[in-house]
Design a protein around this nucleic acid. Structure first.
Lengths: 228, 228
DNA sequence: ACCGGGATCATATCTCAGGTACTGGACGCT
DNA sequence: AGCGTCCAGTACCTGAGATATGATCCCGGT
């Protein structure tokens, strides 16, 4: 995209944003496990920065739902039936909307890419390649969000995707579920490709709620206690 | 909602939250007009607090979309065709979802309240009582959000409602529009009352997008310039 | 010996004032 | 007029201090 002889100088991003990304990534890859306490001073000392940028990053994470207030401070959000339901229902609604607009607005390049990503995810699922499946799954949803041509919607979907991935109990509970999800990806991609907005929207909503049922089942199987 | 004999003690809210509310309210009631510059130091001096809470409040407002970065600092968001479209499409999707769940989950008290509020809004619209109409309109949408029984969704809707109300060019452009909107309120309320989830969802989406078209028309009529 | 209650402490958030880096414009010089 | 320099205003970050609250320990009563 940038053909200037002098490449843009990479200006140091905000410390707040870098801290935000660091904490978020640590939560996503389970370096910070659910329920672990996270305090301003501790994170600040760990990243060797002042408390203020850490504080601002934690405020945003709290607003997004990745960390929650607990007695005395904050902790990484712990999956619960209520939290999982809220997050997935929210995401299902958002992605329903984005699919509808994507079916109307995506350019041909994006439509082809969606079909490609869906097929790649199916291939990865059938080959039991969990990491590859997750990567294609993520790209698939992000591509639809981008194709909806709505920055507010895309931003919110991004947050919701991170939240739901954290609330998942463990990654890839069963490969048969991955295969069925990948088939749903293919159906959605084909609907978008054909410009069938209502069908794409309905399929996407069903897809996300289907994933929710899988996650909920895994959750209740893993931890039948803690009924509070 | 809270029938406890001892009302919750009103604990002194965070300074950040109070500052946030103060700025947000000033933006909503046009004390801070769109495009006006808003800086940390200025607001801090005005509210007689330090810059830190002001800074945190502004960060959240920027994330929600009420203020936007401009050359040298921040300014209150200025309505543009793109911003209006993004915000209303986003809100339409959210409220579509909330209406669907509200039709399935609202208790009888909430359903009656919805019908009541819709009729009140219609009465106010027909009597050209703009302030009353806006109040009932706001309560109507908030009640549906609450009835959806999803805290994440309700929070997001709250932000979206504030944003769209700010992006409106002027309050109540035409009373005939208010009347038609109020009729749509009544239809939505009746669908929720009858538990017709799909119908309520579709009506709500159409309603919000209808409002969007009104706001867009008023915007392009008011300011045909600034084509950037 | 055990239990209940209150003072104390430790640790967290919250707030503040100050300093630094950067940006855009105004001003003066050539 | 064009160009370099200075200046005012801004966000950003730091470190320290104020404040609140859960946890701990001690002690007296049963």
């Amino acid at each position: 995209m940038n053909a200037s002889p002098l490449p843009f100088i990479d200006r140091p991003e905000n410390l707040t944003d870098r801290v935000l990304r660091a904490i978020r990534d640590s939560i996503v890859d389970r370096t910070l496990s659910p329920g672990s306490r996270v305090s301003e001073a501790q994170v600040a000392a760990m990243l060797n920065v002042s408390k203020t940028p850490v504080r601002e990053a934690l405020l945003r994470l709290k607003h997004v739902g990745l960390v929650e207030p607990c007695e005395r401070g904050l902790q990484v959000v712990r999956p619960s039936v209520g939290a999982i339901r809220d997050a997935y229902e929210f995401r299902a609604g958002l992605e329903r909307t984005s699919s509808w607009y994507a079916a109307n607005r995506a350019d041909s390049r994006e439509r082809e890419r969606l079909v490609h990503l869906a097929r790649q995810s199916l291939k990865a699922a059938e080959a039991h390649e969990a990491a590859a499946f997750r990567r294609h799954d993520r790209d698939f949803h992000h591509t639809i969000a981008a194709a909806s041509r709505n920055a507010v919607l895309a931003q919110s979907i991004d947050d919701a995707l991170v939240l739901t991935s954290v609330l998942r109990e463990r990654d890839v509970p069963a490969s048969q579920d991955s295969v069925s999800c990948a088939h749903e990806h293919v159906s959605i991609a084909q609907a978008v490709l054909a410009g069938q907005a209502e069908r794409a929207a309905q399929l996407m909503s069903d897809h996300v709620l289907h994933v929710m049922s899988i996650v909920l089942a895994a959750h209740t199987n893993a931890e039948p206690e803690t009924s509070a």
